[in-house]
């Protein structure tokens, strides 16, 4: 069970890595990777152009609306609010998840005792937490960050534990034989060895965080992207609703792309050693 998220995450990592880089030109591979997107967008554009269904606006209309609201700052203000919540929540989750994960990974007896508790918390439906936490602690920004942090913490924690368990026994013995001080052992031996797993855990947590962010704003908020989407749909501004949902998707994609780039930099040594 413990390895659920990590298996998926690491395999995803390998999927990306394993993509064959054959000798053909950059332009051709770019074309091959993007033609389908273009086809989908063009098809959407023309199929929806003469749409008479009130609930399915044309793509042109959606994009014009999106451009208008991006320009007049309605969306930007909402996005800043949402993304602040997301990043603070993720930061808290990562800090707690990594520290607790390192501890539990090292202390085998404690890990075995609390294992069912961790898995239980992980199974609690994150979206259902939103009405509870917001209902009890109020509508402010703090409870939203708290909910995001709570939901994102478990995959990071579980992956960190996995990472610590995966540290080479020989390295561990070395550290013991040379009597490396406890804090140095944590910082310089265990943490770097577990880092690939930790990063994979954060990548699993990222979409969870974005989902909880949107849900928390749809449920109770007067700000943010989730509120923009829900408010538009409640007032029958159909193109705005589509535009908002589309934008959240694009933001989610861009964040995960940026994360992959950051990961490549951070784990350059790891990927380099893997390809040898």
């Amino acid at each position: 069970m413990t390895s659920t998220t990590s298996i998926l995450a690491t395999r995803r990592g390998t999927v990306r890595k394993a993509r064959p880089r054959s000798g053909d030109s950059f332009g051709r591979s770019l074309l091959r990777a993007t033609w389908l997107i273009v086809v989908v967008l063009v098809a959407w554009w023309f199929l929806s152009a003469n749409s008479t269904n009130f609930f399915i606006p044309s793509l042109e209309q959606i994009l014009t609306t999106l451009g208008r609201d991006l320009a007049n700052g309605v969306i930007v203000a909402g996005a800043i609010y949402s993304l602040t919540n997301l990043f603070v929540g993720l930061l808290i989750a990562a800090a707690l998840g990594i520290i607790l994960g390192l501890l539990l990974g090292e202390l085998g007896w404690l890990r075995r005792i609390v294992d069912p508790i961790i898995h239980f918390f992980r199974s609690v439906p994150q979206a259902a937490l939103v009405p509870m936490i917001i209902g009890v602690f109020g509508m402010g920004q703090g409870p939203k960050m708290g909910t995001i942090a709570f939901a994102c913490m478990w995959p990071i924690l579980l992956n960190t534990i996995d990472g610590v368990l995966g540290v080479e026994p020989t390295i561990r013995k070395f550290s013991k034989v040379y009597r490396i001080p406890r804090s140095l052992h944590f910082r310089k031996v265990v943490l770097p060895a577990a880092l690939p797993q930790i990063v994979a855990g954060i990548r699993v947590a990222l979409p969870i965080g974005i989902t909880v962010m949107v849900v928390s704003e749809m449920f109770a908020s007067i700000e943010g992207l989730g509120f923009y989407i829900l408010n538009s749909s409640a007032t029958f501004k159909v193109p705005e609703t589509w535009a908002g949902a589309l934008l959240v998707g694009v933001i989610g994609y861009v964040i995960s792309l940026l994360f992959v780039l950051a990961e490549r930099r951070l784990l350059r040594w790891y990927h380099a050693s893997g390809s040898q």
Binding site: L36, I210, T211, V214, V248, G249, Y253
Partner: peptide, 17 residues
């Protein structure tokens, strides 16, 4: 790219639509 996009799409955001 399409699959990467779909995977990172928070589907619950699409709910109102």
């Amino acid at each position: 790219i399409l699959i990467d996009f779909g995977r990172s799409f928070p589907v619950l955001a699409l709910m109102p639509v």
